[in-house]
């Protein structure tokens, strides 16, 4: 057990957690931010993607003990003052989600892409989303959403 100090969605948090706690479990079970989902146990599906110090990572493959002093943004922290982030708006506009389960990870991953590449091509978007599996949309709405969001961010 150790006390972890961490900034989550802009808020300083200090909690005592077991050393073997995964970031995803910490976010879901300790902070009760259940927007970060667990869809697999081999770090493939990407439903758990959050931003760690501004970069997308799989929170199911990260120890919270390893994030001491770091800054985390989850899907709950993306929209500010009740206004959707342009990526969220764009997913809505282009029907980039159906059941919604992969969506938080997908959105967080897509936001990271646009941080690195402001105007990605369709192929670059598809390549980047390699680490996020969606079973509902066939990715078409998602790709359209990311492309459109790029033009607005």
């Amino acid at each position: 057990m150790a006390v972890i100090k961490i900034k989550v969605n802009g808020k300083e948090i200090s909690r005592e957690v077991s050393d073997s706690t995964l970031l995803s479990d910490f976010i879901r079970d300790n902070l009760l931010l259940t927007g970060t989902h667990i869809g697999c146990d081999t770090s493939q599906c990407g439903a758990c993607v959050v931003h760690l110090n501004g970069k997308s990572v799989k929170s199911c493959t990260t120890l919270v003990a390893d994030c001491n002093g770091d800054e985390i943004t989850t899907i709950e922290g993306l929209s500010k003052n009740g206004k959707l982030h342009p990526m969220q708006e764009s997913f809505k506009k282009h029907h980039g989600l159906q059941c919604g389960f992969c969506t938080p990870g997908m959105v967080m991953s897509a936001v990271d892409l646009l941080q690195k590449n402001k105007n990605p091509s369709e192929q670059e978007i598809r390549d980047w989303l390699e680490g996020n599996i969606c079973r509902c949309t066939g990715y078409q709405g998602i790709v359209a959403a990311v492309k459109d969001a790029a033009s607005k961010m």
């Binding site: 770090s43 990407g46 993607v49 760690l52 970069k55 997308s56 990572v57 799989k58 493959t61 990260t62 991953s109 990271d112 892409l113 980047w128 390699e130 680490g131 996020n132």
Partner: peptide
């Protein structure tokens, strides 16, 4: 290697 999240970490 892997996917963007794997490459970030």
């Amino acid at each position: 290697i892997g996917d963007p999240q794997v490459r970030n970490r």
